[in-house]
Simulated assay, not measured.
Amino acid sequence: MIFNLPVLLTWLRIAFIPLLVFLFYLDRPWAPLAAATLFGIAGITDWADGYLARLWQQESRFGAFLDPVADKLIVAVALILLVEREANIWITLATAIIIGREIVISALREWMAESGNRSKVAVAFIGKLKTTAQIIALIFLLYNQTLLGIFPLREWGMVALAIATVLTIWSMVQYLRSAFKA
């Protein structure tokens, strides 16, 4: 197992998960901001670990495996927390679509790797857009308050979640089409 800063940043995202849950349920006025900030930091480490691994030529098979696992875990936990708090059809449906897509694409990538066609389902630009929309949506929805009394972050979070959900479906269709052509 390789230990370098990019891999440690990925492990940090996984370590953030119990802290995110704790902050989400903590009954303090500052807790929603802390949870949203923690998730935002996790989003930055998602970008930073890959960037630094490429910059410092520290890419590894282990890092390539662990990075998407960490991403999917923290996003799934944040979505599940929101479903529990909100209990509405829109967040529940978006959560089912996003988590379902991640399971389908993970299985598809494994299947394609076994058949020697892993590159056919490599991460595409639309997947990066989806991830960005998810991170923004989840930061805003975890905070769940109006910022400075004028910026309705919850509503913006719902819009970003809708965009992320559409991009999730779109990217899944693209990955499936690429895979079945192979």
Score class of each variant (00 low, 15 high):
Val121Thr: 08
Ile105Val: 13
Thr92Asn: 09
Arg109Glu: 01
Ile97Cys: 12
Ile135Trp: 12
Gly100His: 02
Glu114Asn: 09
Glu110Met: 03
Lys130Met: 00
Ile97Pro: 07
Gln134Ser: 08
Ala87Leu: 14
Ala124Pro: 00
Leu93Gln: 06
Thr132Gln: 05
Ile126Val: 08
Ile80Glu: 14
Gly127Gln: 08
Thr132Ser: 14
Gly127Arg: 06
Val77Gln: 13
Glu102His: 08
Ser119Thr: 11
Glu86Trp: 09
Ala87Met: 09
Arg109Asp: 01
Thr132His: 04
Met112Asn: 10
Ile89Cys: 02
Ile97Gly: 01
Ile89Leu: 08
Ala122Phe: 01
Val77Cys: 11
Leu82Ile: 07
Ile80Asn: 12
Glu114His: 06
Arg118Lys: 08
Leu93Arg: 03
Ala122Cys: 00
Leu79Pro: 06
Glu86Ser: 09
Leu81Thr: 06
Asn88Val: 04
Glu114Gly: 10
Ile126Ala: 03
Glu110Ser: 02
Trp111Lys: 06
Ile99Ala: 14
Ala94Ser: 12
Ile126Trp: 02
Thr95Arg: 12
Val83Gly: 11
Glu86Cys: 05
Asn88Met: 09
Lys120Phe: 08
Trp111Tyr: 11
Ile99Arg: 13
Ala87Cys: 09
Met112Thr: 11
Val83Ser: 10
Ile98Thr: 07
Trp111Met: 05
Asn117Gln: 07
Arg85Phe: 05
Gly116Val: 01
Lys130Glu: 03
Val83Ala: 14
Ala124Gly: 05
Ser106Lys: 00
Ile89His: 08
Glu114Pro: 05
Leu82Cys: 08
Leu108Met: 06
Ala124Thr: 07
Leu129Gln: 02
Val121Phe: 01
Trp90Ile: 06
Glu114Gln: 08
Glu84Asp: 10
Ala78Arg: 15
Ala113Ile: 00
Ile98Asp: 07
Glu86Ile: 09
Ile80Trp: 10
Ala76Phe: 13
Glu86Gln: 08
Ser106Thr: 03
Val104Asn: 04
Ala94Val: 05
